[in-house]
């Protein structure tokens, strides 16, 4: 029962979504709108899994005083403060804190987002530029003819797609565009077919209960 009921639910909702696509009858349409609403609401609870795991992980680290447990306090305290200012709609208006004013531009939540979330998140990704430059120098070698081909295509796209490319020669952007819209298009379309067919097969396996990895271990 612990496995059958979830599998039956999966089958019912999977088949319903396929049938509904082809049968836009008013009844199926109404049921479709109800299902869309349900899934939207259910999905939000999935957040519980992420937040729960994170809280457990960090509180365990603090309890056991594992190395770096001080940083876990930073995570939990900042999570609690941000949640509180967000849920209580704390705003910074005319130099003072006011409550229940929503999450608009003057909210403390938005201030935290713009001044903590944005700098850290964007700098983490920005750092990749340094590693990529170093990797391009160390690892991007014309070892085989395939690698050489990759290198040549990258060379023209890199040069043709920035203003300096057209300053060197107007032919460079044109050639880069040709690479993108002819051979690149062919390769990407081939990959797209592969992904699409794979996606359909996996979806069918999930609906029919052949793919059961999502059930996890246990009974």
């Amino acid at each position: 029962m612990q496995r059958q009921i979830p599998l039956i639910l999966c089958l019912i909702f999977g088949i319903f979504m396929i049938v509904q696509f082809f049968v836009p009858h008013p009844y199926s349409q109404r049921a479709y709108e109800v299902v869309l609403r349900w899934v939207r609401i259910i999905s939000i609870f999935a957040l519980v899994l992420g937040v729960g795991s994170l809280v457990l992980y960090h509180s365990n680290k603090i309890k056991r005083k594992v190395s770096g447990w001080g940083f876990s306090i930073v995570t939990l305290v900042s999570a609690i403060i941000t949640t509180l200012v967000g849920l209580l709609g704390v705003n910074w208006l005319d130099g003072k804190l006011v409550f229940f004013k929503g999450i608009g531009k003057s909210s403390v939540l938005q201030i935290f987002f713009q001044n903590i979330f944005v700098p850290v998140n964007s700098t983490m990704f920005a750092m990749l530029a340094f590693y990529m430059a170093s990797a391009a120098y160390r690892a991007f070698r014309a070892r085989t003819k395939e690698a050489t081909l990759l290198l040549i295509a990258a060379f023209f796209v890199m040069l043709g797609m920035v203003p300096i490319g057209s300053a060197i020669s107007p032919r460079l952007p044109e050639f880069a565009e040709w690479i993108l819209s002819v051979p690149n298009l062919a390769a990407k379309r081939g990959i797209l077919f592969g992904i699409a067919l794979g996606g359909i097969a996996t979806s069918l396996k999930i609906i029919l209960g052949i793919e059961r990895g999502w059930l996890g271990g246990g009974k």
């Binding site: 994170l54 939990l76 999570a79 609690i80 941000t82 935290f112 979330f117 998140n121």
Partner: peptide
């Protein structure tokens, strides 16, 4: 960052 993103 992790804490703020959870709260957010």
């Amino acid at each position: 960052f992790v804490g703020v993103s959870v709260g957010y």
